[in-house]
Nucleic acid binder design. Structure first.
Lengths: 188, 188, 188, 188
DNA sequence: CATGAATGAGCCTTCATTCAT
DNA sequence: GATGAATGAAGGCTCATTCAT
């Protein structure tokens, strides 16, 4: 049983649940049944551990976006992208918690600045690619909004209270982007 | 010069800039030119100080929403609400930072749970009122999305990198809500 | 009973006895019957504590040198300076231990670099003044040697083994400097 | 390439440069390009490594003193001894650093106590032999002072600041011991 | 109301050392 | 001989909080 992996796993969970600052290295070690020193044998320091986790977990995003590359129509592809994002909100709540938590905390944001920037560019780029394929009127502003909208929904679903109507929101969201771009933009 | 007020002011700024966890009481006292013990004379503890600040600052939200209650058409009222929200993102960046930061941090969220819940209900309610007045087809789901969308835009504007096209986003956003609800919903 | 003073006192003793690196802050606190945090309330950090101690203790050197300024002949003054230095080796062994220890440890030397430099310049200067008054042939090289000699004797007396013949050394030392400079230099 | 030797070499350098306490075993291993465990395979522990190094390096002293045993006059022999000592200060600064550092650090002194004692006795003895051969009036006190003087000069040359006039000091030092003992002692 | 000394728990990190391979 | 994962104690330091004045 790889103890390094074990540390990563436990740390990911605890960082997500409690936040980075509020998760002590000792807490991780205790939960991972590992000595205190081992963390620093495998990772330069707590910050580097966070970076490692961030890199690893954000690859999920890439995978979602990549999985959409099948031989389907642009519209279906767009819907599938949205579908993937919503599915992930439900299945990887922890991941989203970590992602948002880390982005909104000045300290942690500084630690991960380069990685966040990179990932953000990727998201934007991907959204732009799929939106453009769907509608020739899609602008970069639409991509910014697409990403913002998903973030906003994630935040409200995850951090707001239980009664968030995610399914209904999803339906409206799909309608918004399949209708908006396909028809509205061109009308206006 | 009221020292209690001074503490509140400085603490608000520091909490916003550095995050709650990363702002020590001593740091606040130093910046406010006040002795260390005074904070605990005026506030039960650091958590209570945060609650006080949260209560005070979130009243801005209420005020924005209230200021919209003039004698104007529902559409104008909706536009004015959106306008106010976007204006605040620019003018009260710090306030948004604090708000988001605090909501996405498990610890601080727990501290403020009741207050956040209350404020969230208010926002939702207010959005619903204005949206309903504008379109009879507006559902509660629209309100959820309206709030989500604004959160998402705020997050991306504030925490993403400098090049967020806030003005263009705002225009599209207004279009989205004046068009969407007025026409689309009723079609579908 | 001033706890700050108490910390300084105990720390001086422990630093001298065990060396700076090998004296933990906790050890100081335990010995001074003071809580662990208090050290950092009064001193910025362990290094700064050392600097404070160094400043305070090296003032003894200044005092010795100053106490020689009576209305006596240059020769008597020189002898009195030597006398003072030897007396201090015996009475303030701890101080010398600290001084030498700190100067020869790369880390601590770095911490105190400016202070050591300053103190060294003072010693050299003072030696030069007194030697010059005694003999017009005294050069700066004599001052360097005077200081070196005293350091060497201190080191050997303090760190070598019990049988160092300090009194006899002192007699020879006085002879060396009263004879050497008065007569030899002028011959050569 | 013998890894044991490599460890010894690197450790000697690092101990001299940074001091024993401030040199971690890992630092040695990294610099020696050797695994962490190997040190403890070859040496019982860090202390034993220091002892080994001390034994090895202090043999240089013996060699200097031994190299003086040629067929020359006592005065020349004395001068050559002094010459060797001064040359070493310049050439083996690191060695002196280690030697002084270790002697003045309570912890390390304890570790090496027997070895230091032994080496000190040797130095004293050797000085005494050479001084006695040169002058029948030389006493054991002269030997103590001879050793002290050299230590003092070394300390001041190595740890004081760049401007120590070693060459001039050396000239005066030779004069002192060739003149002092040859003439002064017998006068007084 | 206001100060600041004092506390003590907890945090991140370092490090000598052991041990299975 | 050689590796490097693993341990656990200890270190310097931070910080919310209390309390005498």
């Amino acid at each position: 049983m790889d103890k390094r992996e074990q540390i990563l796993e436990v740390a990911t969970r605890l960082f997500s649940e409690r936040g980075f600052e509020k998760t002590s290295v000792s807490a991780i070690c205790e939960a991972a049944k590992v000595s205190n020193g081992l963390v620093f044998h495998h990772f330069k320091n707590k910050n580097e551990l966070l970076r490692e986790i961030f890199k690893k977990t954000t690859n999920i995003i890439v995978e979602i976006n990549d999985s959409v590359q099948k031989e389907i129509s642009p519209k279906e592809r767009l819907i599938e992208l949205i579908d993937g994002a919503f599915k992930q909100m439900v299945e990887d709540k922890l991941f989203f918690q970590l992602y948002l938590n880390v982005m909104l905390q000045p300290t942690t944001k500084a630690i991960l600045n380069d990685l966040i920037k990179e990932k953000y560019a990727f998201l934007l780029d991907n959204a732009h690619k799929i939106l453009s394929e769907y509608s020739e009127h899609a602008t970069i502003v639409d991509s910014f909004m697409f990403v913002s909208d998903l973030d906003g929904i994630a935040i409200n679903y995850i951090y707001s209270f239980d009664d968030y109507p995610l399914d209904l929101v999803k339906q409206k969201f799909i309608k918004r982007y399949t209708y908006d771009l396909g028809d509205i933009n061109q009308k206006i």
